[in-house]
Amino acid sequence: MARPPRFDTDQLLDAAVRLAATGGPAAVTMSAVAQAVSAPSGSVYHRFAGRTALLAEMWLRTVERFQDGYHAALQGEDDPRRAARAAARYVVGWSREHPSEAVILLYGAADFGRAEWSAEHIRRADSGNRRVFASLRDLAAALGATDDQGRDTVALALVDMPLAVVRRHLRGGTPLPPHAEDLVERCTAALLA
């Protein structure tokens, strides 16, 4: 009977997230991840074909986890204004609960080598983005935001503004204040009024 692996994929990706959150994308190397979990480098290469695959999987796991909750917030209310406020709050709440992962998302896929990703990794990234963008378009339509300015206002209220609050604190090395969710909810409501 084969011995179960001592290091699983999530352990390795968790280490990659910690490295990227503290040292940026360049800090994530195969040997650094192996060292972070006290594993032989072969354990990392056994799960990821190379650094590009490791970076892609780290990014995709992070963004997919975020997008699942964000999509649920966008779809979770019958009233589109409540759904908008819930989505804005979700950005801050998720970032508070997952500060290292939030730092990863503040970089963007290009910083983690998207141009070199496999076709499957790109397909996964694009599929998740299409799903969220479709939910944002549906919410904008439900709010009566059918022209470019209206859709831009919805994007500002539900994406740009909550991320600005998160970015200011995480990049500044300060925790998100207790009132951050309330602040983005009020700003979202004001922008969509």
Rank of each mutant, 00 (worst) to 15 (best):
Phe7Ser: 07
Gln11Phe: 07
Ala15Pro: 03
Gly23Val: 13
Gly24Thr: 10
Pro25Phe: 02
Pro25Val: 04
Ala26Gly: 10
Met30Thr: 15
Val33Arg: 00
Val37Ser: 02
Val37Trp: 03
Pro40Phe: 03
Pro40Asp: 09
Arg51Phe: 07
Leu55Met: 12
Met58Thr: 12
Trp59Cys: 02
Thr62Trp: 01
Val63Arg: 00
Glu64Leu: 14
Glu64Tyr: 06
Asp68Tyr: 08
His71Ala: 10
Ala72Leu: 12
Gln75Asn: 08
Pro80Leu: 04
Arg82Val: 15
Ala86Arg: 03
Ala87Trp: 00
Ala87Gln: 01
Tyr90Asn: 06
Tyr90Leu: 09
Val91Met: 07
Ser100Tyr: 11
Val103Ile: 15
Val103Thr: 14
Tyr107Phe: 14
Asp111Met: 13
Ala119His: 12
Glu120Gly: 12
Arg123Ser: 09
Ala125Ser: 12
Ala125Glu: 15
Asp126Trp: 09
Gly128Asn: 05
Val132Asp: 03
Phe133Ile: 07
Ala134Val: 15
Ala134Ile: 14
Leu139Gln: 02
Ala140Lys: 00
Gly144Gln: 07
Thr146Asn: 08
Thr146Ala: 03
Gln149Gly: 11
Gly150Ile: 02
Asp152Ile: 11
Leu158Val: 13
Asp160Gly: 10
Asp160Lys: 08
Val165His: 02
His169Cys: 13
Gly172Val: 12
Thr174Asp: 09
Leu183Gln: 09
Glu185Ala: 15
Cys187Trp: 11
Ala190Gln: 10
Ala193Met: 10
